[in-house]
Amino acid sequence: MFLSADVTVDKQDGFLGVLATAAEDFIAVFNKGGEVLLSLMGGILPTLIVLLTAVNALVRLIGPEKIENLGKAAARPGLQWYPVRYIVLPFVAVFVLTNPMAYTMGRFLPERFKPAFYDSAVSFVHPILGIFPHANPGELFVYVGIATGIQQLGYGLGDLAVRYMLVGLVVIFIRGIVTEAITARMMKKGA
């Protein structure tokens, strides 16, 4: 032990040396991967489990059938129902029913709104992840992947999470309107 302090071993060359270096490089990949895995599991997993449990319990206690009235309201024609249909309903559906059951809320809407509602709802399953990861835990890394980089820089994630969700709401609103218009044109052409 104490000898090794002042004895330095030259890097082995030749065939065995190459093998040894290759082996070290090989295992280094997985050591690094393991480190990353541990930091991910230690970092976000405990919070995620607790949050998932709380929201799941909340949804169970309230009962998902309570939001059906909202679906019926969103089906009404008229300009003032656009925000309900393409902002409030997708948000509530994704929050309460989560991906993929959120799309079942489309059944309260007339046929001409269904593609637009689907487009709107499915586009919100990622922007919601920053604040409510329970809505789509299987696809968490769309957000967490980029968020990890921000964390490494030492910044807080709150700003990014809030902005991601707010911009997401604006985007799903626009998507709903655009897709509704395109659907209307295509249905006219087909008829």
Partner: peptide
Amino acid sequence: IPVGLALGEAEPETVEVGVPAVLFS
């Protein structure tokens, strides 16, 4: 899109229009 629309109980005709509508949008 087809599965999502089916979850919303959409008619087959709606799916036919809805798939390209969403993709172009």
